[in-house]
């Protein structure tokens, strides 16, 4: 399958209808998580969901636009749009590799997402923000710097520690939601074979 047809395949009218709602899920669930004072962001459920049901290209677009729209009321999120795009993209590939068939494979998918994002996120957080985000998790970076690490490695290892806690539950929730959809609805998505048994 060529690149153009692979991209085209992801985008049907159902995909276009789903993306804005998935972005709303990202934003709203992120806010629920902070209202429940959960120690994780889980603000990528919608992105991973689109990646599961519509494929990597739709996932990447959802992620990128999600951060750009978030940036309209919190511009600090804007520079991270490549990270969100990558999350959607790799989550979609996990589907093509057949990782959304059973729950333990979904954990592997979450782990793959979590272990690859620091490679994209670290250069951005170091170049733009000096390795620091405006949250308590930055103290981990601080401790690592104090222990003699360079700023970039400290930010990298901090991401590597924090990401699995965020991405594995996110992937599991997105997968459960996708699996629980009514059958007549599931059949309309472009990547049904990736998650429906």
């Amino acid at each position: 399958m060529g690149l153009a047809s692979s991209v085209k395949r992801d985008f049907t009218s159902v995909t276009w209808a789903l993306i804005p709602l998935a972005i709303c899920i990202n934003i709203v669930v992120g806010q629920i998580a902070s209202a429940l004072k959960l120690p994780i962001y889980i603000d990528t459920i919608g992105t991973i969901l689109v990646a599961i049901v519509c494929g990597p290209w739709a996932g990447a677009l959802t992620g990128a636009l999600s951060n750009i729209i978030w940036g309209l009321f919190a511009p600090g999120a804007l520079p991270f749009f490549p990270v969100a795009a990558w999350i959607g993209f790799i989550a979609g590939w996990c589907g093509i590799w057949g990782l959304y068939k059973t729950w333990w494979k979904v954990i592997i998918a979450g782990l793959i997402i979590a272990l690859t994002t620091p490679f994209i996120a670290t250069p951005i957080v170091v170049y733009v923000y000096g390795g620091v985000e405006g949250s308590g998790a930055s103290l981990i970076t601080g401790v690592l710097i104090k222990s003699g690490m360079k700023i970039s490695s400290a930010a990298f290892y901090k991401n590597l520690m924090v990401e699995p806690l965020d991405k594995i539950p996110s992937a599991l929730i997105a997968w459960v939601l996708a699996k629980q959809m009514p059958a007549r609805f599931i059949s309309r998505f472009p990547r049904v074979e990736n998650f429906a048994a």
Binding site: Y129, E133, S138, L139, G142, K146
Partner: peptide, 14 residues
Amino acid sequence: FAFFLFLIHGFFHP
């Protein structure tokens, strides 16, 4: 953000 930035780089360097 500025608070955390100066906290980390002000006090946490070896």
